[in-house]
Amino acid sequence: MTSIDTPALPRDASTLPSRPAISPTLVALRQFCRSPSGVAGAAVLLILVLTTVFGPHFYGIDPLDLVDAPFTPPGEDAWLGTDYLGRDILAGLIHGGRATLTVGGVAAIITIAIGVTIGSLSGFFGGVIDTALVKITEFFQILPPLLFAMVLVTLFGQTLTTVTIAIGVVSWPTAARLTRAEFLRLRNLDFVKASRAAGAGNGHLILRVVLPNALPPIIVSATMAIGVAILFEGGLSFLGLGDPNTMSWGLMIGQNRNYVLDGWWTVIFPGAAIFVAVLAISLIGDGINDAINPRLRKRG
């Protein structure tokens, strides 16, 4: 152990791969494309989105127009029949999908935005901030979400915006707890300390160092949040707390719920639409989960 002064330092390039690896994001994307259920879900969701975006141009019937006799069964007059007022069900599905999917997407964004903000501050700083934020999270978590959303919608008016915000406001605690747990796990790892030593401030550490590494489970939870929000919108509308002036899948079910036995098509078709959309989103969520969690990959 005395020959410390070896004159030349051997270069250490022997085993270096010649080509850089693709980034972790691309690896996950590639993996996702290999999961059949994930791809199927993505395809179904894409079809749904395209239908609601471009459908109205091809199927020019206004969903709120009374086009035929009430309870016209599916047939040549109206492909999927008409509801209790004589409004076209297919037009309702196409136009209502816009509202429903938008509510789902925006509510999920609100959920994740609030949840990730609170969870990351809580997990990163710890101490008093953590205690306070966890108490707030728990307060929101013990409120029954549907009841709380109903109160909010009743208080602030039955518009699509209120419904969206209400859904976002009641469903963030799960995301917050998930984010907090990830931050607690990551914040003491050496590379976070190394970044601090390299001159990173708290903002940089949270946004650029810890959050990107905490992101995979958050993305899965965001995907699932879209499905939950769509179901929530359906539930609120079913209880008569949706926006009565905007056609949505939930509204169709809610308004026709008393006539299920007179015209099954008035409720079954929007119900099936919600089912298919939520199923597709769940499959995507599963696909992403498998793609970013290597231990689950073998499961197929």
Partner: peptide, 13 residues
């Protein structure tokens, strides 16, 4: 003692 192309690699490499 690392070659310049090491800059493009990820830590796991």
């Amino acid at each position: 003692g690392l070659p310049p192309q090491a800059a493009d690699l990820f830590p796991h490499q």
